[in-house]
Every structure is written in structure tokens, then in C-alpha cells.
Design a binder for these strands. Structure first.
Lengths: 136, 136
DNA sequence: CCGATCTGTAATATTTATCATTGTAGTATA
DNA sequence: TATACTACAATGATAAATATTACAGATCGG
């Protein structure tokens, strides 16, 4: 699984705990253990989809834009990792009935798998994640 | 998703279509478009779990050991890719409540996700895959 | 208006993971 | 005993993920 997905969840959870002030990419990066530029890249996706707001300049940073329960892990998956479940087949032999058709058969099966996973991920929102973090 | 998973399915499907003779790693590799050594590596896992048999020497190779309907994609996933769904978190900051606990929260969630995926993959056996290939 | 502090983004370098290749030993067959 | 295989380890090449650097643009407070 794509680690942008993890980073997005981590970032949103952190923002959820700082509802009243802007958090900088450096602050988030420090918590997540990655480079600030990566955080900005991932968060710019989340911003594009309206989950967070950002502001440049002094005192700027990122802040949650919705209710915590309005953002599910499935939403985040779709933005950061759609298609990640698909196995990447090598170029196989078109002369062989298996080589020629395996890719499209697996594609179909994994499309279903991704939707099935979606049903599971929909049940977890950032609200749940925050409460799981707090339980620890 | 790990491509060993794909290779295993590809190989088993090919073996399913050659029920009466041994198939060599070179033959399978040609169909799958990868190096024979990789095929042998993946197939040795499947052999260890009793799904196929192998024989060395002239006229040797690999052959299916069970009924096609006895091998599901979930079985293959567990052998080749268990844990692949788990996002690989970077070392995060232990000083921060989020950094300190995110990994274990995500681990739990993705354990559930993998089991949920399992329910889906159990419905596809090599028999189904073969028939999907033939439909094309 | 100027300097400091941010985001936004592209370009490049570095690290890591994946995969191919080579080599060698062992087994079966004819 | 020569040939055709698997088995497996070790090394090398390639591709993907990630960090780093660099710079432009926004915002704020003197």
C-alpha cells in the first residue's frame, strides 16, 4: 500500500487535534518523520478535494475544512492511492492464451476487490482514527 | 500489490491448462514475460504448500497437485503477499501522540482490511480464473 | 515597502526495492 | 555419462520511492 495514504491519514489526524490554528508542513513532517516537501505534496491533493484549507505566508499552514466524520479512509484512499491494489503485470506473451488475457482478467477481479475494500474503509472516518489514537 | 501474486496465478492457470504433462519454468516464464529463476522461486513456495508438484531432470517441471477449485486467490495471496496491504509507515516521532500511536492504529485497521479482502478473494479459485480466461 | 515566514512546484540526487543474470550443485532420464 | 531439468545463493542492473535543493509567489508585521 502506497505510503501517501498513510501520510494523508497522519496529517489529517494531526490537523484534527489542532482545530484552532494553522499547522505548518514542517510541524507535520516532524511528527510523521518525512520531508516537509512531501507533506506539502500530499496535502495539496487533500486541499484540491476540499478536505483542508491552506494559507501561505507568516502564520500560514494547513487546517481542517470539514467535520472529522465527513472524511473517511475510503475518501483518502481514492485520492491518494486509487488503483494501488492492481497488481502490475509484466508484459506477457500475446501468443499464449493465458499471457494474452491474464492482465484483463486480473484487472476485472481487482476492480471488484478495490470496491470491496472500499466498503470496509468507508466505516473509518478521521473521527474514529482520532478516538483510536486517544485510546492508546 | 506484489507481483509474485500475479505470477503465481499466471503460473497456476497455465498449469491448469496442461494437466497431463510437466511444464518447465522456461515455458512458464515465456508466457509470463519474466525470468525463469523468478518462476522457480515463486513456484517453490506453491510447492511447499502442496498446490503443485515438481520434478527435476529431463522431462521434469511443474504440475498441478490439486483440483482447480481447491485453490483460491486468497490461498495464493496468503502465501505470496500476506501483509502486502499494510502501509509501510516511516519511523515517526515518538514524542508526538499521533506519531507514537499511528502505526499501531493503522496496523489494526489494515489487519481488518486484509481479512475483508480475503472474503472477496475466497470466491475466486483457479477454476474460475481458467473459465474467465477461456471466455475472452 | 522590506524582511521574514510560509505554501507551491519543479528539478535533481539519493536511497531502497524489484528484478534479471550468472554460477554452481543436485536430480532424473535415456 | 551426457543432457535437461529444479534449487538456490550471490551479484548486478533497473526502476520506483523518497529526500534534497532551489526558487517563485503569498502573507504578515514592522
Amino acid at each position: 500500500m502506497n505510503s501517501d495514504f498513510t501520510l494523508a491519514i497522519h496529517s489529517l489526524t494531526l490537523l484534527a487535534l489542532q482545530p484552532d490554528r494553522m499547522s505548518t508542513s514542517e510541524y507535520i513532517a516532524e511528527s510523521a518523520g518525512v520531508h516537509p516537501v512531501r507533506i506539502r505534496k500530499v496535502l495539496s491533493l487533500l486541499k484540491k478535494h476540499g478536505f483542508i484549507k491552506s494559507k501561505e505566508g507568516t502564520g500560514g499552514g494547513f487546517i481542517f475544512a470539514l467535520e472529522l466524520s465527513e472524511v473517511s479512509l475510503w475518501d483518502i484512499y481514492k485520492i491518494t492511492s486509487e488503483g494501488a491494489l492492481q497488481p502490475k503485470c509484466p508484459e506477457s506473451n500475446e501468443q499464449c492464451i493465458v499471457g494474452a488475457n491474464m492482465q484483463s482478467v486480473l484487472f476485472t477481479i481487482f476492480l471488484g476487490a478495490e470496491n470491496h475494500l472500499g466498503e470496509y474503509l468507508k466505516d473509518y472516518t478521521i473521527k474514529e482514527v482520532v478516538s483510536l489514537i486517544n485510546q492508546k
